[in-house]
Design a protein around this nucleic acid. Structure first.
Lengths: 185, 185
DNA sequence: GTCTATAAAGCGATAGAC
DNA sequence: GTCTATCGCTTTATAGAC
């Protein structure tokens, strides 16, 4: 069998799943080499900074994805209500309807928070701000929109926690549906 | 200085803070001996099962605390609305107004979930059920009360995630206040 | 009940051949 | 770019003296 030549960009999504499943501390190099099917040599070739650089790359890719699929559309869509509905759809799909957990949330709760403070804070800040903007464009007062954006993010994160804790992904779907219905009023 | 003689019950709260701060994997025995000021000999005397038994003991104590201060009052109080208001007060205080994170939530998101599945699920199940009961006693329909209980738990957990992620405990306080106001309507 | 010493395994990271 | 071998350190856990 021909030898596989990997690219850094191929590896990052695999790393994401491993960090998501085991957390930063739990994602040992043994698990990473197993999951990526890459030797330590290759891994350190792509990520000279080791595990920390791997995690940073994953956070960066998550940020890119959300920027492209969630944050930017929220800001630039000309129909704000439609952009918000689209956000809920993207989020539902991204988290596999509650079967996938939020890596940024995992890092936020653990002691990884301190190490990746800027990226963790930046992710939620960008989300809150872009959602806030969109809510204002639906005609809501600035203060109301700000609180609402905060609440929507909290419900999403909390529902992911509950869905995983109770092993019942439907909790996440129900929470999103409820929130969309509340916004429609 | 006289030698300190510890009791298992004195150690558990200290362990709780360490697990909360570092997660299960991150809570090394080195950190635990440092935090508890107990040698490994003493620790393994109290917890022959090692770290796993320590974490189980912490989860057990958290469950006991919530049962006594939150779940039971929710079920037995004769003024349901008052019991729910009391729950919000206890929760606000317990999580130090957003400066303290939920250990069960931390375990739920990490790979610790699988190891402690029963205790993690039991904690949220007991909370959801007792809150559901109390909401029914305020006159709400069963289905409405169930969804509302789920939403309240999600907001609490999500707000804790956001508060820690953004390093802004006020997010948690605002979320609780908002939810209480919504319930009052 | 507490301690120190120690075992055995796993960890992240590096070196160097190919 | 990939691999294997290896270093040095930390990990959990145990043994045995006090």
């Amino acid at each position: 069998m021909a030898r596989m030549i990997a690219e850094r960009s191929d590896v990052v999504p695999v790393l994401a799943e491993i960090f998501r499943a085991y957390g930063f501390e739990g994602a040992s190099l043994a698990r990473i080499t197993e999951g990526t099917k890459l030797g330590k040599g290759s891994l350190y070739h792509f990520f000279p900074g080791g595990k920390e650089e791997m995690a940073a790359a994953v956070l960066g890719e998550i940020d890119d994805w959300f920027r492209a699929h969630v944050f930017d559309p929220l800001r630039s869509g000309n129909d704000a209500a439609k952009s918000i509905a689209a956000m809920f759809d993207e989020v539902r799909r991204y988290f596999l309807a509650g079967r996938k957990v939020c890596l940024v949330g995992v890092f936020a709760l653990g002691c990884e928070r301190d190490r990746f403070a800027a990226q963790v804070d930046g992710y939620f800040a960008a989300w809150a701000d872009s959602l806030h903007e969109a809510l204002v464009r639906t005609g809501r007062a600035d203060a109301v929109a700000k609180e609402l954006a905060e609440e929507i993010l909290a419900v999403i994160q909390g529902a992911l926690v509950l869905a995983r804790a109770r092993n019942e992904p439907e909790i996440f779907v129900r929470a999103l549906d409820r929130m969309e219905r509340r916004l429609a009023l």
